[in-house]
C-alpha cells in the first residue's frame, strides 16, 4: 500500500512539470525568434543543451543588451539569453563569454582577433528604404560599426555595403539606423542556417 502511494504520487509529480509547455499557447509563427545570441555562443542546438539560464551573462553585461527570454520566444528558449539588436546592440566587450559556467558561450578575448572570430549573425541592407540609396547621404550605420571598412564599406552617398565574410553581427548598425523601421537588419546565424530569411545582400 505504501509503495502504491509512492508510485501514484510519483506519477502525478512527473505530470506536473508537463503543465508548463501547455502554457505556451502561442502558435509557432507568431513567436518572437528574431534575436541574437551573445557573442561566442555555440551552434544553436549545442547552446540550448548547455545553457541553464543562470543569468550570469546578463548580470555581467555592462551594456545591458543581454536580456533573458520569456514565453514570447517559445518554451524552448525560456530563460535563455538573447540580444534584440534594435533595442541595444552588443559592444563586444566579451565579459559574458568569460563568466559562462557551462561553456554555452565559448571564451573569447576583447581583442580584434577575438572580435573577428565572433559570428552572431550577418547584417542585411534593405536598399528600397535606406536613405543613402534614395540619394540622401546618411552613413549612420557605418559610424556605428566596430569593423568599419571591413564589415561595412561605403559606396556613393555613403551607401552601406555589407561584407558577410567580415560582419560579426553585433547589431550596433541596426541599433543606430535612423530609418523607422530599420533599413539595416542583423539576422542571426541560427535563422540563416534554418533558411527562413530570404533577404539578399
Amino acid at each position: 500500500m505504501k509503495r502504491r502511494n509512492f508510485v501514484m504520487a510519483f506519477v502525478v509529480g512527473v505530470m506536473l512539470p508537463m503543465i508548463i509547455p501547455l502554457l505556451d499557447k502561442l502558435p509557432a509563427r507568431s513567436r518572437f525568434r528574431r534575436f541574437l545570441r551573445p557573442p561566442g555562443a555555440r551552434a544553436e542546438k549545442d547552446f540550448l543543451d548547455a545553457c541553464i539560464g543562470c543569468g550570469q551573462c546578463a548580470n555581467v553585461c555592462p551594456n545591458k543588451c543581454i536580456t533573458m527570454a520569456g514565453f514570447e520566444s517559445g518554451v524552448e528558449n525560456l530563460a535563455t539569453p538573447k540580444i534584440v539588436a534594435r533595442a541595444k546592440g552588443c559592444i563586444l566587450c566579451m565579459a559574458c563569454t568569460q563568466v559562462c559556467p557551462t561553456g554555452a558561450l565559448e571564451k573569447r578575448e576583447p581583442t580584434e582577433a577575438g572580435i573577428r572570430a565572433v559570428r552572431m549573425g550577418t547584417a542585411f541592407v534593405a536598399e528600397d528604404i535606406c536613405y543613402s540609396f534614395a540619394g540622401r547621404t546618411c552613413g549612420v550605420c557605418y559610424r556605428a560599426c566596430p569593423l568599419p571598412g571591413k564589415a561595412l564599406r561605403l559606396g556613393l552617398f555613403e551607401q552601406p555595403h555589407v561584407d558577410p565574410d567580415h560582419c560579426v553581427g553585433c547589431g550596433l548598425c541596426e541599433q543606430a539606423c535612423v530609418h523607422m523601421p530599420q533599413a539595416i537588419r542583423v539576422i542571426s546565424t541560427n535563422e540563416l542556417a534554418m533558411g527562413s530569411y530570404t533577404g539578399t545582400n
Binding site: V11, V12, G13, V14, M15, M18, I20, G53, L78, T80
Partner: peptide, 16 residues
Amino acid sequence: GVLVGGLVAAMIFGHG
C-alpha cells in the same frame, strides 16, 4: 516525480 518530470521536460524543451 517532479524531479524526474522536470529532467524529462528539460531534455525535451530546455533547461528554462
